[in-house]
Design a protein around this nucleic acid. Structure first.
Length: 108
DNA sequence: AACCTGACTTCGG
DNA sequence: TCCGAAGCCAGGT
């Protein structure tokens, strides 16, 4: 009853989750979506980042896709994100692939 | 109101 | 293992 929540609770949840990603680690869109409560909201994470990344100061660079690669395209922020991750200690393999088994954030 | 887009994920061939 | 299509959520046009 009572639908007092008109805003999207997921959006706030997603933001909080991303803010919890520790430095030197990365998380996937699906992972964040799942932690936020909707494993199917991977695309919602994208939308949220684009809208709140600067407002909430989110570590958007720590969010990558499930393949372990940066989803951004060269010239669209790819180089920047990669640089920021490398600066935190995240290593890239051939093809710009990050070993998730070593760098993926694991909340407990 | 309908269609399209977006830094995705998952399944099938 | 790689490629293509479908599914998902919300906002913009």
């Amino acid at each position: 009853m009572a639908q007092s929540d008109k805003q999207s609770p997921l959006r706030a949840k997603i933001i909080q989750t991303i803010k919890k990603i520790p430095r030197g680690k990365v998380a996937t869109y699906g992972q964040i979506a799942k932690l936020a409560g909707n494993p199917r909201a991977a695309r919602l994470v994208v939308w949220t980042l684009n809208n709140a990344s600067e407002n909430e100061k989110l570590p958007w660079h720590r969010v990558i896709n499930g393949k372990g690669t940066i989803s951004l395209r060269p010239g669209q922020g790819y180089e920047l994100q990669r640089k920021m991750l490398e600066d935190e200690g995240v290593l890239f393999g051939m093809g710009g692939v990050i070993e998730l088994k070593n760098f993926q954030w694991r909340p407990r």
